[in-house]
């Protein structure tokens, strides 16, 4: 009887405390910062034990990314040259500040088998990271910061379901919306039937901003079109985008601070 009442008392006290923290959104900033500082090296250590790509894998992966980025940059230079010749304004890519970050967490249902949709980085508000900042490798878009703590941040990958942003193809300047479908699948949707899509064309971010001035910067590579779905009876056409980045083989990414 005594034990029952002590258990009930312990439960009520702890549950009320948890409910207060939850309802009043008590972030307990100092405590969460301490917890993050304690957990970050443990997370990083455990992550490096399970994610150890070989040198050969790294080299092949780097070659693929380098080729895609060079191709995208060449296309951009051609486009700039044409614009200069026609005396229109060139695409003005703002200089950006890049913060290198290590991946310390890659939560998946079955590590090594199922595909992740989020990753955890070892940089947070203490290093100037904010929600909405894009995360890249070279010039290839990986995802966007969706949550931030003092020393860690959560990135939602572009393949995550319901991740949406405007984009365009480099060769044909076709506009569309890039949408994540989970399981590393990314598609370009809402493309007008009258617009041209080509297999192998590179898709880049368009750079649209919302009312608060936030959005992905223009010119970031999303991937290459690998398949086109065009039906005359449909309202729009769509295309599958091949993502060049295998996130399970990556240990470091960059956060665009500006």
């Amino acid at each position: 009887m005594r034990k029952n009442s002590s258990t009930t008392f312990v439960f009520i006290v702890l549950f009320l405390f948890a409910a207060l923290i939850f309802v009043f959104r008590m972030q307990l900033v100092g405590i969460s910062g301490m917890i993050t500082n304690f957990s970050r090296p443990l997370q990083a250590g455990l992550f490096s034990v399970f994610n150890h790509p070989s040198n050969e894998t790294n080299k092949k992966f780097q070659q693929v990314v380098d080729t895609l980025v060079s191709q995208a940059q060449m296309n951009q230079l051609k486009s700039d040259n044409n614009a200069l010749r026609d005396q229109f304004a060139t695409a003005n890519i703002e200089p950006s500040q890049l913060l290198p970050s290590r991946i310390i967490g890659l939560p998946q249902f079955l590590p090594g088998i199922s595909l992740p949709e989020q990753l955890i980085l070892d940089q947070g508000t203490n290093q100037g990271v904010q929600k909405g900042m894009p995360v890249i490798i070279k010039n290839v878009l990986i995802g966007e910061i969706t949550k931030v703590e003092s020393a860690t941040s959560l990135v939602t990958l572009i393949s995550s379901p319901n991740f949406l942003f405007t984009a365009q193809t480099q060769n044909t300047n076709t506009l569309g919306i890039v949408k994540g479908e989970g399981a590393d699948k990314v598609v370009l949707v809402n493309v007008e039937l009258s617009d041209t899509l080509k297999i192998g064309d590179i898709v880049v971010t368009k750079g649209d901003k919302n009312l608060t001035g936030k959005g992905l910067p223009p010119g970031l590579v999303v991937g290459k079109i690998s398949a086109i779905n065009k039906s005359p009876s449909a309202l729009y056409q769509s295309a599958a985008i091949q993502n060049p980045i295998d996130i399970t083989k990556v240990s470091e990414v960059f956060i665009m601070l500006k």
């Binding site: 923290i21 939850f22 959104r25 972030q27 917890i35 993050t36 967490g105 949550k147 860690t152 959560l154």
Partner: peptide
């Protein structure tokens, strides 16, 4: 309770929810 708080910080959930579920 403590595990819930730790998990909330590490997985970026709203602080307190995991503790409430566990308790």
């Amino acid at each position: 309770f403590l595990m819930g708080l730790l998990l909330d910080v590490m997985t970026f959930r709203r602080f307190g929810i995991t503790s409430m579920i566990f308790l």
